[in-house]
Design a protein around this nucleic acid. Structure first.
Lengths: 338, 338
DNA sequence: GTAACATACTAAAGGGTTTTAGTAAAGCAT
DNA sequence: ATGCTTTACTAAAACCCTTTAGTATGTTAC
């Protein structure tokens, strides 16, 4: 039994397919009696327009893509994503759009992009000139860059460097000299990208704080780790086991910091007495953590919301490329001694 | 400048559109020289097949829909969703599928379903015979029911009643007699559904524990609240402000329990000395909470994974409807005194 | 009584691909 | 030279809808 098509409804209602289409799309051009008749026939047959056919014709599927340069599993291991999606959802709910998560297919983002039936993309963590997304510019598919460099395309970023600088400054001014910095590992494929990602921006902030405090910076204290609670936990445990005894840890992501907290607990370290920890993001659970996490707040939900909003308006009028810079702010809680 | 189509590539390469299609879909039927020639032309023109056209023909877009009966923002306010999506992602990553979040359009799930270019749906929190999803059965679109009753359709559920019973039993056997139970409020539209949802199953478990302990059950102690940390926080604060002084709180969701913890902290209550709290789900942050949350564990990631897996195989062979029941288990942590 | 216009509907083109059925040429055995 | 199979490619139909341009009818205006 094949799918019920517009032709079936037309036949049943005794009208042309065009009339059926009009019934759904511009009922004002039809007499009320006809509309009723067609609606009845459609109802009885259980007809709904085929979304693929509709999208093919109008190039509008009502779907925003969220492009993430890693596996979905790895991405959502970081609570940042839930909050970001929540924010995008705010705009989607409002504009009746759906939200699609697009991650590499067979390791290729390009492939994933070209197969995804989305009207546009919010791109997380890649710059606008990244080769993996160049097909989008060529095909004039609208996209918004988040946490990445952009000039032509609209973008949403946080003031990472300032926030990072504040957090490092905070620790340095309290006398800490023996820090460890946990940064998130880029997905393997992007490891050697020349592109300046968020991690690097935050590092730059830390480095600036070192300069301002006249403390000598060494790349040796920077340890990359997979960006998840487990990643941070394991990473810090290894650091400790290797004999290093930092008095404080700076993390470029709350996921890592929460992991450090867990590791510290397991290792019997008291926070903040034996070890101070500062994160980045202020994900919802930072405030709930044990102890509550000192971190650099960026408005994640708002970030997602404005990215989706920007994309939605780009779909409508494809005008004006706006660049949004969101503020960051050090939130002092209990993983640091005041 | 219109989109580059298969015809453009065909013209440029001096072959028929069919040959171009074959180049991408079954290159073995072509001579290597031709494949090279076409690939080169496609590359030069920046051609990628139109996903809508492809999906129209094959009825396969490579997209799994996650149907949620509430707004995306509200859904992702509950950390359960992030873990569930993570699990679905595991299966999607493996099978090269994308994941689409579909929530009501203009308040209508039906509308959202009919517009979504997804190959099938994982349906969260509705039974298979719910009227909002009946169009799917009629159109023979595959779907998997999660946290809902199903007989014909494949389903994934947790043993909610047993888990809930254990948790209530645990509190009752420690002498608590003055409990409050926080349940999550259904989205308004589904408020009066006759359908037995997870919340009710869990309540049934609590009730059974009351019976087993010969304690009289009263519906008055059951307080519905929006299912988020904020919801639980506010709800418990109101309860306390209203003069009630329960010695323990049972929550049908960790989101609520985490909220209660936050409220307790604000109200100056010590947990577990002044108030004991038990959640449900064991979301990742339950273990990290302050204090760590006693809760009923269900394997959320696994739930998402098997739901997506079931759906993916239903798409392939549309056979065998399996029903998966995942175990639950009380995890005693620090919000209860042992 | 005819031109001008609005109303209610339809035929046909188009959107971009995949797939089926088929053709032409080459290879092989007899 | 004849028939049979294989190989390499193509024409045309199909997928299901929307939209443009147009027809037929009725209404109004002078």
């Amino acid at each position: 039994m094949p799918r019920v098509t517009i032709a079936d409804v037309a036949r049943k209602a005794g009208v042309s397919p065009t009339t059926v289409s009009f019934t759904f799309n511009r009922p004002t051009e039809l007499s009320p009696a006809t509309v009723r008749k067609v609606l009845k026939a459609a109802e009885e047959l259980g007809y709904v327009p085929n979304p693929h056919a509709r999208a093919l014709l109008s190039s509008r599927a009502g779907v925003l893509g969220l492009l993430v340069p890693e596996r979905i599993f790895d991405a959502f291991a970081n609570p940042f994503y839930a909050a970001f999606v929540q924010g995008m959802g705010l705009a989607c709910d409002q504009q009746n759009l759906s939200l699609m998560i697009v991650s590499p297919i067979e390791g290729s983002l390009e492939k994933a992009i070209s197969r995804a039936p989305a009207d546009g993309f919010v791109i997380l963590g890649l710059g606008e000139d990244h080769r993996d997304i160049s097909p989008l510019s060529r095909r004039k598919v609208p996209f918004v860059i988040v946490d990445g460099d952009a000039e032509l395309a609209p973008s949403v970023n946080s003031d990472d460097e300032t926030g990072a600088c504040q957090s490092a400054s905070f620790l340095l001014s309290h006398g800490h000299r023996d820090l460890v910095i946990l940064t998130f590992l880029k997905p393997r494929k992007y490891m050697h990208d020349p592109y300046h990602d968020v991690g690097e921006r935050r590092l730059r902030g830390y480095r600036r704080a070192y300069e301002e405090h006249d403390v000598i910076w060494s790349e040796d204290i920077v340890i990359p780790s997979p960006c998840s609670i487990e990643g941070g936990e394991q990473c810090f445990e290894e650091i400790w086991q290797s004999g290093q005894r930092p008095t404080a840890v700076l993390c470029t992501s709350d996921a890592l910091a929460l992991g450090v907290l867990r590791a510290a607990e397991r290792l019997g370290l008291r926070v903040p007495e034996d070890l101070e920890v500062v994160g980045f993001d202020d994900v919802p659970q930072a405030a709930l953590a044990r102890p509550s996490l000192t971190t650099v707040r960026q408005p994640i939900v708002e970030k997602g919301r404005s990215a989706a909003q920007l994309l939605a308006s780009a779909l409508d009028d494809n005008q004006l490329s706006r660049h949004i810079l969101l503020p960051t702010e050090l939130v002092v809680r209990r993983t640091t001694s005041c």
